[in-house]
Amino acid sequence: MTAASLSRQPLDSADIDQADIDQADIDQADIDQIALASYVLGLGDDTLILAQRLGEWITRAPQIEEDIALGNIALDLLGQARTLLSYAGELEGKVTGTSRGEDDLAFLRDEREFRNVHLVEIENGDFAVTMARQLIFSAYQYELYTALLTSTDPTLSALAAKAVKEVAYHRDHATQWVLRLGDGTPESHDRMQAALDQVWPYVEEIFDTADTADILTALPGVAADPAALRPAWSRYVEAVITTATLSLPAPTWRSRGGRAGYHSENLGHLLPDMQNLHRSHPGASW
């Protein structure tokens, strides 16, 4: 496989088979590596983009403790993103011969090359929307990292052991707020319910096994099947919602395509903010 043929569709195993690549040049091990790189990149992009979104709250949160809390949570996610993106770049390099570093992947890719789910790129909305998203995502990550503790991939299992402890705090933070707002005043209850209704269409995509099919087939035991995380996630999240006197939304549509690089305009607005400095001043440091 040549670097040039890959660079057109980096890290997208779905397109490799159809691409104009001489099949004779590809061996199975390369296909497996690309499937793994693609999976890791998806997880990394979820954490990177949500870290960026949460960072937008700093100086704007309802109280200074929340500025600090959301900043801390964003920092944990950024730490996870650094490990995941570095690893994705390294895996890609094994196939292409030139590996991209964490900064290359974070700052020099365009919208179509990002593999995050839609949930993490939606705008922050009011505080209730951000907490609804945090509840969904941190409860998902808690199950994800719990499952990855037993991954046969040593990098993923090491990260999971570290990150699951951080994410337990994130999940608890979101839980406390959803309970407090849901079971609070009529105004806070209504806005918390409206927030859940707004973010729920983005839930299905997180648990879509189709997006992870390549890696689950190629390297069994490495990735966590998203659908298998769903029952425990539902038990937790539904208990929070019920206890908060809120009702479980029944959305009429669902997002899809994030893992294949199809995004909403939200990501298009987020990326220049995140990438501008690096692109304007390559290699800048301070």
Partner: peptide, 13 residues
């Protein structure tokens, strides 16, 4: 100890 969940005693912080 693992971070406790607010769910175990939902009305205390």
């Amino acid at each position: 100890q693992p971070a406790q969940s607010a769910l175990s005693a939902p009305r205390s912080i």
